[in-house]
């Protein structure tokens, strides 16, 4: 696994509705996640994002794919910056 992902990561969706939809599905699958504010450096939105642990990345991607959720982007933190994966 690449080093970046050891840090915390976030999933970003286009609407609050899609974010909460993903949150509900991931919670049902018992994935540890947390709703956070979208970092300002990613978008100027007042929207939300989902924080997750890097080691859950593959499972999460699978769930997102199986449920036809359209993801806008995945970012991981590197110091003060968020890097798009």
């Amino acid at each position: 696994m690449d080093k970046e992902l050891k840090e915390e990561c976030i999933l970003v969706f286009q609407t609050t509705h899609r974010t909460l939809q993903a949150e509900n599905i991931l919670k049902k699958e018992k994935i540890k996640i947390k709703i956070v504010l979208k970092p300002r450096s990613i978008t100027t939105d007042c929207g939300l994002a989902i924080r997750f642990n890097a080691e859950d990345k593959d499972v999460i991607f699978k769930i997102i794919k199986n449920n036809n959720l359209s993801l806008m982007g995945v970012y991981s933190r590197s110091g003060e910056k968020w890097i798009k994966l």
Binding site: Q14, D45, G47
Partner: peptide
């Protein structure tokens, strides 16, 4: 809408 605030245009996605 709270979403895509940086854009001049109305978001295309529902429900926003």
């Amino acid at each position: 809408t709270g979403s895509s605030s940086e854009s001049e245009n109305q978001p295309e996605l529902l429900p926003d």
